[in-house]
Simulated scan of single mutants.
Amino acid sequence: MAQYGVGGVKRNLPEPVVILADGNPPTHPAPLSTLQTANTLICTDGAGEKAKMLDRHPDFIIGDMDSHNKASLSHGTDIIELTDQNSTDLEKALDFCIQEGVVSATLLGLSGGREDHMLANFAILSGVSKKMKLSAVTDYHTVHPVSDKEDFSCISNSTVSLLTAHGQPTVTTTGLRFPLQDQCLLSSGHGVSNFAETDKFSVKVAGGIVLVFIRHGD
């Protein structure tokens, strides 16, 4: 992913940091709560208007600015225009976070709209997770890229799906109804629709990256 010079002195970006991408705006209480409690809200080009519709004012808008009306912004939004067409606006926003020393962020607006954009967004989520701690919240799931061992809390009996994002990982789980023990995910559907037996479970991954999808409660 390309690096961009966006200024000299690093800004102090208070946590939690949330990036709103230009997919469908969130409607479920889980992503809406994440949006409303963000202390730093970064929008990709085109997502700033969606944030305003949800009563949130972006702190930053980042991208090539081919989808945003600058005149519609109220005072206080820092616009960072990056015209390089070799990376997406989401990649540019994440590059900005890395340069500013952000250690973790939550992504919203990854799904909906064009399927190629959606798949690229989840590929970016997994790829950049090697550089900073990332998660995504959609209207259906909270999504975590896992490349080591992580423990999760959830509602008991939540649907949990595991999908390979990179490499040929072996996976070990505890606390799921259908456990895996040093197993490769044999097909794209092998890890779909498992269930948490209690309100906690763990996933251990070696040799790649797995996306863990935890379904929201109704």
Results as ranks from 00 to 15, higher is better:
13 L>N: 04
5 G>D: 14
16 P>N: 10
89 D>R: 03
199 D>C: 10
78 D>R: 12
203 V>H: 00
91 E>M: 04
172 T>E: 04
51 A>H: 02
106 T>F: 00
145 P>S: 05
138 T>I: 00
196 A>C: 07
193 S>Q: 02
76 G>E: 04
33 S>G: 09
19 I>Y: 05
1 M>D: 09
217 G>D: 10
54 L>R: 06
166 H>N: 14
130 K>L: 12
84 D>I: 08
92 K>P: 14
70 K>L: 15
69 N>V: 11
174 T>I: 01
78 D>F: 09
153 S>V: 05
70 K>I: 15
216 H>F: 02
100 E>I: 03
95 D>C: 12
192 V>S: 01
156 S>W: 08
207 G>E: 02
129 S>N: 07
53 M>S: 14
181 Q>E: 13
70 K>Q: 13
56 R>I: 00
197 E>G: 12
143 V>Q: 00
87 S>D: 10
110 L>A: 05
171 V>S: 00
59 D>L: 01
63 G>T: 05
188 S>E: 15
27 T>P: 00
187 S>V: 07
201 F>H: 11
22 D>K: 13
199 D>H: 11
130 K>C: 11
80 I>G: 10
174 T>G: 12
172 T>S: 11
209 I>C: 12
23 G>Q: 04
3 Q>S: 15
2 A>K: 14
119 L>I: 15
185 L>N: 00
145 P>Q: 04
90 L>T: 05
105 A>E: 08
123 A>Y: 02
25 P>I: 02
53 M>R: 14
78 D>G: 08
149 K>M: 14
12 N>S: 14
53 M>D: 14
101 G>A: 09
20 L>C: 03
206 A>E: 15
33 S>D: 04
